[in-house]
Amino acid sequence: MNEGRCVKCGSCLRACPVLNDPSGTQFPGPRTVGVDAPRFLEKGSVGQNALRCTMCHACEWACPSGMTLTRSMLQLRSELSGDLLPGHRRMVGNVASFGRTVATEFNGWREEGERVLYFPGCIGLGRLTGLTESVSSLLTSLGIAHDISREALCCGSPLLKIGVTELAEDLRRRNAEVFSRYDRIITSCPGCTYQLREVYGVEAEHIIEVLRGSDLRSNLEGRWALQVPCHLKRGLSPWTADDLAAILGKAGVDVVRMPEEDSCCGGGGGMLSGFPETSGSLARGKVEIYRRAGVEGVITACPFCSLNLGREGARVLDIGEAITLKH
């Protein structure tokens, strides 16, 4: 990491959604966690509060010196000593038992030996099976025949966020074998997509990238805000934010663009399970913005955004649901 570049401008602190939220006061901040604490002999001095970060990359985007803050924070997180937080311990326990972070509810498995694998990720197979079903239908209607394989397990990203590297590597090995049977891998979770590309070296595509240029329809009425997922815009590609708006616009949805649409919902980085009160507070901030704007709801392309915003009372649709929803 190019850590010698810091000039203490504080831009990362001003960009951090956690520090900007009244509930985030215990987070030491991206500068302490990513730049300053790593310079000490004992890295772990910041303690578990270093995990109060949603890994949204806003700090990295804001840094005028181009520092790879997220990578540095992840490194420090992996060096923390001490016990896992209760929520994280549960998550790791689940993965160790059955290969996913949450209990699997989905039962529409398809193992037909197709060339394309749809990889919904743990939340899509657990808490938001409707999201998975809509994306699957959407793919089918686009003529993309696909498997949804029971053997494809957690991508490992949540484990890497809390330094549980060996188990994550174990998952990677097992998934790599499954992936090798397919020509194309499509995901509906930007976190999974980023993990597959960055860590697995697999050319996974997020559904937004698949839908680029497609001719779709929507029956949605009223005005809709966008929640541009962090790992989509700041992880995969900044062009995806406009892609999301463009796809919906072309499909006839009245999209309301807002400056805060790409700020973190609070659901990433292990926050949902580790510090749910902070996740919730961040999401409530966004829900308040939607209320003030008077929109019908918000459309996103990430199961964590869907889950977190939904829990705080927003009407959330995933892209798959927005496009296929019948009036």
């Binding site: 203490k8 030491p28 500068r31 302490t32 300053d36 310079r39 000490f40 001095s45």
Partner: peptide, 8 residues
């Protein structure tokens, strides 16, 4: 509360 971030 930290006053000097470089040296914590």
């Amino acid at each position: 509360r930290v006053i000097c971030s470089c040296e914590q």
